[in-house]
Nucleic acid binder design. Structure first.
Lengths: 231, 231
DNA sequence: CCTACCGATCGGTAGG
DNA sequence: CCTACCGATCGGTAGG
């Protein structure tokens, strides 16, 4: 058996060590979303996966290597939850809408138990220069970039008014989604997602063209006459 | 001298211990905005203020007490930076605008070196039930409430269309401001604030009435034809 | 993958 | 406000 054959086999059947590594990283990403990337210690991760600290060091030679691998694993999870369904949608306005919906659903389903891995990591590391921050920044910037690309795509297909600035529109749509996700985690109140959906629909409506496919209906959030609790 | 006189004097002239305590808490709030509320350790705070750990325990009997005092001190800072200028503005649309501007300015000036104390603390603690989370939640919910109140105030004065839902509008305006603040910390790029200002102005424009005072002019963010970096 | 360590630091206490 | 401690846990290493 030559080297190429070996590599091919390895790609087909991941080794047991590789499977263990992936299982560890799944737990690590969940744990880090709650405890933070620095709060993710070798000790508590070892306890969470049921092995010794020494055992973990067989997979990751340092805490930094573990953190970087965890960031990478979290990125794959986000792509599976948001990227895949978005790319599966028909291009244009529907794909833009699917991106928003996947992002909202990803937040509402708490794919990471402590809230979006990258939102948390960004808040944690934004004032701590280093490799971790750099890697987080790249991943954290992606959704906004994707959003801008989807806007442009919809405009190119004539399904969205070309007069809208893609970056500005992407900024506004992402703002609604992320703010809803933050408020949801703090208040445990999913009504913030309804607000975000409504805001997105209202923002897109004046930009629709005669080529635009119909958007799903969005309910108007219930209006209370008085803003609650004024201390 | 009876007890009342003593109390009065104490209120007028804060004791040296109290002054030290306030100085410690200022450093603690700054440090916590970078390191997080859990990363704020007795040891590194002691080093930062130039005293021993034992010395700190003379002011705060436990880490939790220190954290709670720090949250309170940070709340006062935020009120000084956002609440005071907002209340000083004339009621109505101008006050709503001032609230937005103070919030943006507070973020852009990095009043806390690691970014908004409460935004960071909320991200850190949103999955960790307890006293800390509860206190953070109250403080974190305030800006959105204030925003809703200012919208209502402007509507009551006829300076903003009454058909707008105050809570929905407050949600959208706060979304823009907070997303800009987050992006600013990650990218070190203040252009996100220009986007937020523009988004706010555009959102308010169709709601203006003949009683509305003029809003300050807001520049349209520069539009790039292609969304940068598409890997 | 394990046990058995290492020096450093954690929150906290004692005694002054 | 200090020094001098305490047990627990940190990241990491040695040796198997």
């Amino acid at each position: 058996m030559n080297e190429t054959t070996l590599t091919t086999l390895r790609n087909r059947l991941p080794s047991k060590g590789e499977l263990t590594r992936q299982a560890i990283l799944q737990v690590a990403a969940d744990l880090a979303s709650i405890e933070g990337l620095e709060g993710l210690t070798i000790g508590n991760l070892a306890k969470a996966v049921g092995m010794s600290k020494g055992g973990l060091y067989a997979h990751f030679r340092s805490k930094l290597e573990l953190q970087l691998a965890t960031i990478e694993a979290a990125g794959k999870i986000v792509d599976r939850e948001i990227g895949v369904p978005t790319r599966a949608a028909p291009p244009g306005l529907r794909r833009l809408w699917t991106l928003c919906e996947s992002y909202l659903s990803y937040s509402e389903r708490k794919v990471f138990p402590g809230g979006c891995f990258f939102a948390n990591a960004a808040a944690e590391l934004d004032a701590k220069p280093g490799v971790l921050r750099d890697n987080i920044r790249v991943a954290h910037g992606k959704p906004l970039m994707r959003m801008g690309e989807r806007v442009q795509e919809a405009q190119a297909l004539g399904e969205l008014d070309a007069k809208a600035d893609p970056r500005q529109l992407a900024f506004e749509l992402a703002s609604f989604i992320r703010e809803a996700a933050r408020l949801f985690l703090m208040d445990d109140d999913p009504s913030h997602f309804a607000r975000a959906r409504y805001a997105i629909a209202q923002r897109l409506r004046p930009l629709l063209t005669d080529k635009s496919p119909a958007l799903p209906e969005v309910q108007t959030p219930k209006r209370r006459e008085r803003v609650a609790g004024t201390p």
